[in-house]
Amino acid sequence: MFNRLLFAAVLVIVVWLGLLSNSASSQQVESRINNLEADFNRFESRLNRLEAQINQTRQSPSPGVANIPPLSNPRRNVSQSERDRMFDRLATLVVELKQQVNKLETRILQLESTR
C-alpha cells in the first residue's frame, strides 16, 4: 500500500513538473515569436520611411538635397515584383536562421543536461 502511494505521489510530481516546463517552454517560444514580429515590424517601418524619403527627393528636389547621393544604386532600377521576391527570400532566410538557432539551443540544452 505504501509503495503504491509513494509511486502515485512520484508520478503526480513528475507529471506536474512536466506540465510546468512545457508551459514555460511555450511561453518562451511565444515570446521569441513576438520579438521576431516586433523586429519585422520595425524593419518594415524603416523600409517604408526610406521609400517615402526617396519618393520625396524624386518629386521635389530642393537645392540642398541635390548634393546628397541617392540611397539606392542608380544603375539598377528594382521593380516592385523584384522587391517582393527579394523580401520573400529574406523572410525565408530569417525563418531558416530561426530554425537553425532553435536546433542549436536544443543541442545545447541536451549537452548541458548530460553533464
Rank of each mutant, 00 (worst) to 15 (best):
T57E: 15
L71C: 07
Q99H: 09
Q56N: 13
P63Y: 10
F87R: 10
K98L: 04
P70K: 05
F43M: 12
R83F: 14
L111Q: 08
L109A: 15
R107K: 11
E96C: 01
T57S: 11
F2G: 06
N77A: 09
E105N: 10
K103H: 13
V14A: 07
E37F: 07
R76D: 08
P70T: 02
S31C: 06
V95D: 01
K103G: 06
R76H: 12
D88K: 03
R32A: 13
M86R: 10
A52D: 05
Q28K: 07
V10L: 06
A91K: 12
I13V: 08
E44M: 04
L71P: 15
Q59D: 13
E44N: 11
V15L: 08
N35P: 00
V95W: 02
L90A: 11
N102A: 14
L20V: 01
R115V: 10
R83S: 12
R49W: 03
M1H: 09
S21E: 03
P69G: 04
E96L: 04
S79T: 06
E44F: 06
S79L: 01
I13F: 10
L71V: 08
Q28D: 11
N34M: 04
N67P: 03
R4F: 09
N55Y: 03
E112L: 07
N48S: 10
S113G: 01
E44T: 09
N22Q: 13
